[in-house]
Amino acid sequence: MEVEKEIKEDLLKTFKEYVSNIKISRARRVFIDVKKEKLKDVLLHLRDKYGITHISTITAVDVNENIELLYHLLKDGVCISLRIHTPKNAPDVDTVTDILPGAVLYELEIQDMMGVVVKDHPDPKRLILPDDWPDGIYPLRKDWKVDWVEGGEIKEE
């Protein structure tokens, strides 16, 4: 439990009002709310001070007006989840691939599934959804109910 507490204290001291709501739900699980604009600084700080370079994934959750993004960082079994919020009507977030290169695919994934625009992504393209998937429909948003999307046609080779 020491590492988790240490990180908690340290982040509170360094970033003050930019981090809040630090929750250690059980051993090796830390959830931290971060202001969107400070996310990269926190990531850099964690990388340089604690050597955290492994990002497990980015989870996007639809919560009413906002879209919540969770960056799950892992180091020796300790998982630190940084939570940021972005408004649902115009969701966007800066890319973190310059700090954590492993996040490339996860950023594309949230872009596809939740419609969060990732700014400055090195290779923005459709990753998961079909090529003929209509723009503006993001399947994991709560307001989109599973209904039929018109299928594509067989293209001549």
Partner: peptide
């Protein structure tokens, strides 16, 4: 109501459920 992260080591590597 709560949230949880569940890690396991699948034959291919770490598996994560949020």
């Amino acid at each position: 109501e709560n949230e949880i992260l569940s890690y396991t080591e699948a034959p291919r590597g770490e598996l994560l459920y949020y």
